[in-house]
Structure formats: structure tokens, C-alpha cells
């Protein structure tokens, strides 16, 4: 081999690669979920930890199983299944029977993710689709929330306590400062606002997620909630206590920072992401105030996921020198 051959490495583009890998991103998300999970375990007892572990292990297990059965390359190493498992678990109440996270993982991994082609091809957030599947199938189990225990060694007591959202929906008021600092009941991940904010701050500082979607989502849901209340003639309800409970009481923070920001299922252009987040806020406000259910974040995000290809199509950037025009449907 002469010298000229070794000096040039011939390859196709891209020639410069960043250090960012799927595995690294997923690891960041997992790290950001540690405070959330920790607060959940602290609030609901060791059973919450059990649910989180079962959920993560069964997600990885189902992905392995599916790839073995269909003789595909194994992709468990990219940690995306572990993230799906963790996100599914923090969306479950700590009192669910232990088969619920297993069934949810099967739905998330096999039906929403692998059957559509694996990571990057799932049309909606797998963990959220599984949560909605479980919520519709087992409404009773999925909406019985335990009271907070705060003793790590004890098992969770099964006494149903109203979540902050349900309380404000029935007209009670919760002090905003307690809401922000204290533990409150709900799904495992909803226990502590501070823990969610710590995780979110980590993701924002590491630039794993951009601030655009979560903050637009949170602000737009607050605006739409206020608007709907004014239109309904309930403007006197809008107090600091009420708005803080609406924003921090349910899954909104969790959804905004950890689920709506899923790369695969939101639009790719900045404007598209903005429209997506405003849409999520609108749907959340409509479901929370105008339907029978107190919570609407999961539904809002999966509806938004399904609309994001349409948003992308409307906002396809044009290449240089070409007038911008949406791609006609038949050419897609």
C-alpha cells in the first residue's frame, strides 16, 4: 500500500459526526428521572420502587423477546426501552396490581413501538399510549390513588385520596405554597413538584430538551384554562391557588418536560414545535374543564403526537431558491 492511499479515507457524507448518541440521550433522560422516581418512592413507599423496576425490566424484556422472535438486531443497548419503562411507571399509581406495568410494557413496546418499526418509527409516545390503554381498560384500578406515606419501609396504604386536580375540580382550594413544596397524591411521578423541576432543569442544562415545547405547553394550558373559565362565566375561580394547582397538581409538568419533548413524536421545525405545544395546551384545557375527566395531559400528548406529521407537512422548509409550498399528499 503506498502513501497516497492511506492519506485519504473515502466515505460518503456525513463526514463530521457529533458525539451525541441515542444511548447518551436516553441515559440523560434516565438520570433526570431519578429525582422524580425518588420522590415517588419517598411518597408512596417501597411498592412504587417495585412498580418502577418491574416496568423497566419488562419493557427491556419485551423488546428483547420481540427482536429475538423476529430475528432482528438487538437494540436494547440504546436504553430507549428502559426510558419507556420508567416513564410508564411514573404514570401509574403506586397501588396498581403488579401485572399492570407488565401488560402496559407489552402494549408500549410491542404494539406502539416494534410493530411500527422500532425506535424512531413509533407514531406516538409508547409509554403514554400504554398509559391511555390501561386507563381506558382498567379505569377503576388506574384512578385509585394512595395517600402519601413518606416512610420508605412501609407498604402503601390503599386509601383513595383526591388528587389536587380532583380537589380543585370539586371546588376546594389548595394553598399554592403547599402545592409547590409538599408531597401530594397522584401517579408515582406526580408526587413532588420540586423533584420534577430538578429533573427538568438537568435536561435543560444538558440541552437534551429545548425549552420551547415544555414552556409553551405550560403557558398555553394556563392561558386556555383561564380563557375557558372566563367564557364559562367562572372568572372568579381564577386565583393563584387554583392556577398553581392546575399547573402543578396533575401530570402537566411531567408531561411537558418528559413526554411532549420526545424527539420522535413531535414536529421537527421550531414553528411546528410551537404550534404543537399550543395545541397540547388547548386540548389539555378542553379535556380538564369541559369533560368528565379531571386530567387530560396523556390524551393531549398522544393526540398531538398523531397531528405532528400533519404539522410537519404544512411547515416543510423549502430548499434554497424554491418558493415554499406544502408538499401535496400524493407525493409524500
Amino acid at each position: 500500500m503506498n502513501e497516497s492511499e492511506t492519506r485519504f479515507a473515502i466515505s460518503s457524507s456525513p463526514h463530521l459526526r457529533g458525539k451525541l448518541t441515542t444511548r447518551g440521550i436516553m441515559l440523560d433522560v434516565l438520570i433526570a428521572l431519578i429525582p422524580v422516581c425518588g420522590a415517588g418512592v419517598f411518597a408512596f413507599g417501597i411498592r412504587a420502587l417495585l412498580i418502577i423496576l418491574i416496568s423497566i425490566i419488562s419493557c427491556i424484556g419485551f423488546e428483547l423477546l420481540y427482536e429475538k422472535l423476529t430475528r432482528q438486531p438487538l437494540t436494547v443497548g440504546d436504553l430507549s426501552a428502559a426510558v419507556t419503562g420508567a416513564i410508564l411507571a411514573i404514570n401509574l399509581p403506586a397501588t396498581v396490581p403488579l401485572w399492570v406495568p407488565v401488560l402496559g410494557s407489552a402494549f408500549a413496546i410491542i404494539i406502539t413501538k416494534m410493530l411500527f418499526g422500532g425506535l424512531g418509527h413509533n407514531f406516538m409516545n409508547p409509554a403514554l399510549s400504554a398509559r391511555v390503554f390501561l386507563l381506558i381498560s382498567f379505569a377503576g384500578i388506574m384512578t385509585t390513588y394512595p395517600s402519601t406515606v413518606r416512610l420508605i419501609s412501609t407498604f402503601t396504604k390503599v386509601t383513595s385520596e383526591a388528587t389536587p386536580l380532583k380537589s380543585v375540580a370539586s371546588g376546594e382550594s389548595i394553598n399554592w405554597f403547599t402545592m409547590l413544596t409538599d408531597m401530594h397524591t397522584g401517579c408515582i411521578g406526580e408526587a413532588s413538584v420540586i423533584a420534577i423541576l430538578i429533573g427538568a432543569a438537568y435536561l435543560l442544562i444538558r440541552r437534551t430538551i429545548a425549552a420551547r415545547i415544555p414552556f409553551t405547553y405550560i403557558i398555553s394550558s394556563a392561558v386556555f384554562i383561564a380563557l375557558i373559565l372566563i367564557i364559562k362565566g367562572d372568572a372568579e375561580l381564577i386565583t393563584i391557588d387554583y392556577m398553581v394547582a392546575q399547573i402543578c397538581g396533575g401530570g402537566l409538568l411531567l408531561g411537558a418536560f418528559f413526554m411532549a419533548t420526545d424527539y420522535v413524536t413531535n414536529p421537527s421545525t421550531p414553528l411546528g414545535q410551537f404550534i404543537f405545544a399550543v395545541l397540547l395546551g388547548l386540548i389539555t384545557a378542553i379535556i380538564r374543564l369541559l369533560s368528565g375527566s379531571a386530567e387530560g395531559v396523556s390524551y393531549a400528548i398522544i393526540i398531538g403526537n398523531m397531528l405532528s406529521p400533519l404539522i410537519d407537512r404544512l411547515l416543510t422548509p423549502s430548499y434554497f431558491g424554491k418558493r415554499s409550498k406544502p408538499i401535496p399528499f400524493e407525493n409524500a
Partner: peptide, 15 residues
């Protein structure tokens, strides 16, 4: 056995 209510609803038909 806890029945999976989703299967008798509309999405279940598609699945």
C-alpha cells in the same frame, strides 16, 4: 382475570 375493557371498545376491534 381482570377484563381488558379496551378490547370490547372500538380500538379493540382494530387490534
Amino acid at each position: 382475570y381482570e377484563p381488558i375493557a379496551m378490547i370490547v371498545l372500538a380500538p379493540g376491534a382494530f387490534f
